[in-house]
Structures are given as structure tokens and as C-alpha cells.
Design a protein around this nucleic acid. Structure first.
Lengths: 150, 150
DNA sequence: CTCATTGCAAAGGATTTGCACTAAT
DNA sequence: ATTAGTGCAAATCCTTTGCAATGAG
């Protein structure tokens, strides 16, 4: 039904766990795992609806939980008051650059930062586990009086 | 009534803005501005209650808004689903180190990080405005099988 | 006195849950 | 057949708002 590899991996996960592979789970997984953007739960429902299907809000959230448990999806919080989700790519860890005007999100990776956080944590007696960095600013387009927040 | 300098500054701010100096505002400001911890709105109400006074939830939030506007308080989001607040100290900017086991929060400052974020942002065409870094780990006490999340 | 603040309760937005119904295996 | 998933609506959690009563200046 779906050719996307990430969705296929989700199906494999469901079978491993002996969980039913339902049309709703596939639709939600497809929307989330093939998206280029960081979607919110509401946007997932809208995306599924665009595809002609219909999924209840509760199911969207329940499927998101399953996807998170499978490790194929990761949760992001940009301080908007709700969560966004992004497919877990091969990138081990990356940071986010957010345009406060149009909302665009870019990702980047920085080894030095990784090392730096470990050093800081250890110097204070913490066993570092993970970190999260978000840089806020105005993107090139918006600096030129371009796009406005939709 | 209150000897704490930060609270005195809040009173000065209220007078400047021609805003009434009420007992509730003082109680909330006292709880927040003299705290060593990052309090949530609920904890503020509890703290005020411990002092014998009573403040409605709405008033807590409204006073927090005023304190934020005054610049004497800053907002923090540790991804718990609600906000925490911290008095604005002289420190221009600092990062957080959070123990995922007991919830303890330590602060630190790092110039290199500051510079690094500006460079990364600019290299991608962003005009950097601010950033936020939170490192998660396990603190020394908890590593020794110490404190557990309350 | 006059106008802003307060408290309470109702409203809101995101997310979760209870339950009868439907579908996957 | 069994067992788990789904939708809907009600319920939660944090936060905001409407409004009559209250208090600061």
C-alpha cells in the first residue's frame, strides 16, 4: 500500500509487536514519516484528510505514541504550547534554527556542541544523556521583508 | 513590608506604571523573585498559601504577566507541559542542566556557546536573536542512588 | 469616589480517557 | 471468534477570560 521505506519499517514494527496494522495507523504514519516539515497532531489529521481518509483525533495521538515507541518518530517542542513531530532520520542528533517570523525550521549538526555539552555536564557532576538547542532568529527571506507568519 | 530588593524593584515598577500595589501582587512577586528554584504557577500559589495568604489562580497568572512585562521575571519551558519562572538575575544569559531523575536544575554560562550559535545562524542566513540550550542528565546525587523524583 | 484588581467559575486549547462499536488476525 | 483499535464525547491539565464584588489611590 505504501512504498515509503519508513512506513514499511513501521509496518514491520507493528508485526513484531503483534499489533494490528490498520488503515488509520498507516495513514498517520505516512503523513508523519514522509513529511518534510515538523507537523503538529492537528496538522497530521488535516494531512490525512487531504488524502481522502479520516482519522479521529484520539487515534492520531495514539498512533503518535506508537510511532514514538517504535523510535521512528521523535517529538519536538518549539514552545508553541503544543508538540510537533519529526521522522527520526539517520542523523544521530541535530539542532534547530527557527525563524521567529515565518516559523521555518532548519536543522544542523555540530560536533563541537556535542562535546561541549558533555564537558559542561561532567564538570558539574552530571552524567550527560542528551541535550536540546534551539536558536531563534530571522531567516534570510524575512530579513528582506519577505514572508510573514501564516 | 518586604525587604527583598527585587520585590522593591517590582513595587517601583508598579508605581511607575500607575498600577495599584496590592497584597496579592506583593505575595506573588515575593514568592517568585526570592525563590531559588524555578517555580510553576501552581507552586507559586502553594508558596503564597504557605505564607498564610491566599491568591486565586487567575491572579497568579495575571501577576506573572506583569512581572514578565517588568523584566524582573523570565519564563522557562522544560517540556513538562507547563511553564516555570525564574527571577531575572544579572546574568545576561545562561543555560540549564536538568537532572531527569530528581528534577534539579542547575545553571551555567558559556561564552563560546554564545559565539557558536551566532556563527551557525549567520552561516545559514539567519539573523540570530536568542537561543536556548537544555542539557539533560543524571546529577551526582542520583548517580549514587540518591534522591528520587518527588 | 473611580477605576483597576480580585476571585470564582466558565471558557479554551492540547491531549487523554471511557466506552460501545468495528475490524484485524 | 478473539482481541485490539477506532471514533466520539466527556474528562484533564494548564492557562485565560467574563463578571460582580472589592480595594487601592
Amino acid at each position: 500500500m505504501s512504498e515509503h521505506p519508513a512506513v514499511a519499517r513501521f509496518v514491520a514494527y507493528l508485526r513484531e509487536q503483534n499489533l494490528p496494522v490498520t488503515a488509520q495507523r498507516l495513514a498517520v504514519a505516512e503523513a508523519l514519516l514522509t513529511s518534510e516539515r515538523h507537523l503538529s497532531a492537528e496538522e497530521v489529521a488535516a494531512e490525512v484528510a487531504r488524502g481522502g481518509a479520516r482519522v479521529g483525533t484520539a487515534t492520531v495521538y495514539r498512533t503518535i505514541d506508537t510511532l514514538l515507541a517504535s523510535g521512528l518518530l521523535v517529538e519536538r517542542d518549539f514552545g508553541e504550547g503544543f508538540r510537533r513531530f519529526e521522522p527520526a532520520r539517520d542523523i544521530p542528533h541535530h539542532e534547530h534554527l527557527v525563524c521567529d517570523q515565518c516559523g521555518r525550521v532548519e536543522e544542523f549538526r555540530d560536533e563541537r556542541l556535542e562535546r561541549m555539552t558533555t564537558i559542561v555536564a561532567e564538570s558539574r557532576g552530571f552524567a550527560r544523556q542528551r541535550h536540546r538547542l534551539v536558536i531563534h532568529g530571522i531567516c534570510r527571506d524575512c530579513q528582506r521583508g519577505g514572508p510573514r507568519r501564516t
